[in-house]
Design a protein around this nucleic acid. Sequence first.
RNA 1: UCCCUUGUAGCUCAGUCGGUAGAGCGGGUGGCUGUUAACCACUAGGUCGGCGGUUCGAGUCCGUCCGGGGGAGCCA
Length: 469
Amino acid sequence: MHVFQRRYNMSALIKEIKKMEAGPQLVTAEGWVRTKRDSKTVCFIELNDGTCLKGLQVVADKEKFDNNLLSSISTGASIVCEGTLTESLGSDQAVELSASKITLLGEAPESYPLQKKRHTLEYLREIAHLRPRTNTIGAVARVRSTMAYAVHKFFQENGFYYVNTPLITASDAEGAGQMFQVTTFDLDNIPKTEEGKIDYSKDFFGKKTNLTVSGQLEGETYATALRNIYTFGPTFRAENSNTKRHLAEFWMIEPEMSFCTLEGDMEIAQNFLQYIFKYTLEHCEEDMDFFSKFVEPGVKDTIIHVSESPFVHMTYTEAIKELEKSKDKFDYKPFWGCDIQTEHERFLAEEICKSPVIVTDYPKEIKSFYMKLNEDGKTVRAMDVLVPRLGEIIGGSEREAGLDLLQQRMKELGLREEDYWWYLDLRRFGSVPHSGFGLGFERAVQYVTGMQNIRDVIPYPRAVKQADF
RNA sequence: UCCCUUGUAGCUCAGUCGGUAGAGCGGGUGGCUGUUAACCACUAGGUCGGCGGUUCGAGUCCGUCCGGGGGAGCCA
């Protein structure tokens, strides 16, 4: 990126101005006032436009400016400053803007909710429309955007096509949790059949529909046509879960690869995570330093380490053996066949492996119907990527490619074949081994930034009893 | 949904054994100063989350409802 390049009618971004050298040319800076400090003859304004963490110091000689103008420039006000860049006498910045002209665009009276002091993240959630103007949420927003770009960049550069799977779905049986129903019915006057049941034939789609809980099944259809695809879009879960790592509306990334077995799946998952981590470290250095200093001490070093070291591999059976050695530490005693609890996941990643770990070959009973059965008849070709601090960040598998085996599995679980006719067609016509995984985007942002609560890494969190703004 | 915890000034919190409230920051005013979480002084600002109960008296004890946080389950 060229620092001096002008875009459309925009003046230079503050992140670019800060990299310029002192000189006689006029520079214009626009932004919001973070804080103002007065001295006898000069006034210091820290101006931030959100393009970087630390703002530009604007220095206004009090003799040159109307006192009313300077006094109305308070924290939160929006201003335009024109002047020349000079070498700063202060030690916290290389250059500063010596203002020759300041225009107040919008004042911010004392009722402005953001003070020039630390606020709790809980309070900031109540003013979600203003919180991106804070250091922390601004940094999260920049990192989130950078990570989203890295996601596309990784897949686009590695032979994947971006597929948009539907958000509204008629398949009610994906089994991945409670769904939000979509209807245009007047809920006070719902059409009923003669038997008194809801008459969905009169609803908008002529059948019962919900918001998607996963684009995977539709993703598989495009993977078995374009070879490698990925989805990256919103996902909805109506579960009544109240935790710091669940949302009712979140963004999920789901790659799906044809002619790919579980081994390839694991390799891509690791390379993918490491790529977006490295890309973010490279492009968000200032923000990562901030997170590492104030949000989660050492998170930057952790991400550097994780982006360079191979992940540990372990089968479910091996993982249970390891957990049984320390069973006294757990509320839920581990045994072969049990679900791996959050406490187990974290112990595996944090204590046993001290790094991300990929656990594979889970008992079929605790995994989804579409996962490929191993030859032992008991386990499936599933993999979960567990990371320290968070637990599961990726869940994936090699898909069952055999029609008979898939039909048998669905029968065992009471799934109706007619609901999945098109999914089964993929096994009827040109079936191939294929694999994929799902990554919760917000969880990845949490992991990279060290933010404790998922509601602080998405602009407007939707959760149980929470849909403001 | 369950368990724990919390709700006091604009924000963050203190408030002892039940006797109707304090600090820091922020705001305002004044002072000082090339400042950078600026500093110093003064000042304004409160239905103590709502409702009900116990008591001579409730921020404090009890019940209940609502909101916040943490943990669990479910999962991404």
